[in-house]
Amino acid sequence: MSDTWGLAGGDTIAPGLTAVRAVGGGEVYEAWLAFDERLHAPVVVKLMRPGHVDVESSRTGLLREVEMLSCLNHPGVVRLFAYDDEAERPYLVLENIDGPNLSSLISKHGYLPLHQLLPLGLELSSALHYLRHEGVCHLDVKPSNVIMGAPAKLIDLSVAMPVVEARALDHPVGSDEYMAPEQCLPGEQGTIDHASDMWGLGATMFRAAAGYRAFDREPRWQQLTTDPAPLPHFVPTALGDLILACLAPDPTDRPLPSDVAGALEPMLERLPQARLSGFKISR
């Protein structure tokens, strides 16, 4: 039997929250687009799966995400509106962002053109710059955790934690192909830190630029033993070099988020300007 509550559109998720349609999920949560009567607006509800309600680590993860989102406020990070960890179906009520996730966009259309890719890099760098100054590591930056709204937004802070806690980790955390080497083998490959999120940014931007991953899923953790796959010829050299710098094995060799933003801005400025009826549209 699948680990789901068996909801359908129109069902009540919790008082004041009506299910509209399923929008994905993962091992611990199912996610629903819902209507929130209090906000009188669509929201996303992350609903803990039945098999995880009594799992201490899952409940701890829910409360960690609540704690993280409650103290963060940035245009590039999803907002938390409400939660109830004591409900029969523990849940979070999150901002509904109008747009697909980056992973599904790439799967459907392939690599992103530069006029989408460069703003994406700037927006994610902005979010990571903010998290760095707030002392928070996301630890799961990947295409499926990026919603292509305006601006793009990072979601799913279920494994995010203060940098002090991240530096003390002694076990792997993250998603295999998007984990920095030090996330795979903490202590052996280095200390988990803000630079680990920059590796996730590099792996995410690589897939968005190329349409395929920098490292295959099998064998596990190829990033520990092999170099990234070659980028396609159509990726500008300067952009490719920046992406590969984020994927440096040594965390101290990776750029800061502000460095990445500073390098992307002139690339974006150099893109051809849109024209309408022969007239250039000025910015």
Score class of each variant (00 low, 15 high):
E182L: 03
D197S: 06
R207E: 15
E177H: 05
C184N: 07
P181F: 00
E165H: 08
A166L: 09
T204Y: 13
E177G: 00
Y212T: 13
P172I: 05
F215N: 06
T191R: 10
Q189H: 05
H171R: 15
L169N: 02
T191Y: 01
A214C: 06
E177D: 01
P181H: 05
M205R: 03
M179H: 10
P172K: 10
E177Q: 13
G211P: 02
A208G: 09
F215C: 13
T191A: 14
P181S: 08
E188T: 12
W199I: 00
A203I: 12
S175G: 02
I192S: 09
Q183D: 03
T204C: 08
D216K: 05
Y212F: 15
H194N: 06
Q183R: 06
V173K: 02
G190S: 11
V163G: 05
M205F: 10
T191G: 09
E165L: 14
A180V: 05
V164L: 14
A168Y: 00
Q189A: 15
A209E: 07
W199C: 00
G174N: 03
A209N: 09
P219K: 13
V164M: 12
F206S: 01
T204H: 11
G200K: 03
T204W: 07
D197C: 08
E177N: 04
D170K: 14
P219D: 05
P172V: 04
D176A: 08
R217A: 14
Y212P: 00
M198S: 08
M205Q: 08
G190L: 04
R213Y: 10
R207Q: 15
E218N: 11
R217C: 03
F215I: 07
A210K: 06
T204V: 07
A214Y: 14
P186M: 10
Y178A: 00
P186F: 05
G202H: 08
I192E: 02
E218R: 15
M205P: 10
A209R: 06
T191N: 03
G202K: 04
Y212M: 09
D216Y: 01
T204G: 09
E177V: 11
L201H: 04
E218Q: 15
L201I: 03
L201T: 08
V173Y: 01
S175M: 05
A209M: 10
P219Y: 04
L185I: 10
S175W: 15
Q183P: 07
A168L: 14
A180K: 04
G174H: 10
H194R: 01
Y178Q: 07
Y178E: 08
A214N: 12
A166S: 11
A180R: 01
D197T: 06
W199Q: 00
T191E: 15
S196D: 03
D176E: 11
G187L: 00
E218L: 14
G174T: 00
C184V: 15
P181K: 11
E218H: 10
R213W: 07
L185Q: 12
A195L: 01
R207W: 11
G200R: 04
G211R: 14
A210N: 10
S175Y: 13
E177M: 13
S196P: 04
P186S: 09
F206I: 01
L185E: 14
F215P: 13
R217E: 14
D216N: 12
P181N: 12
L201K: 04
E182V: 02
F215M: 07
E218P: 00
M198W: 11
L185N: 13
G174M: 02
D216A: 15
S196F: 02
G202F: 12
A168S: 15
E188K: 11
F215D: 08
E182G: 09
Y212Q: 08
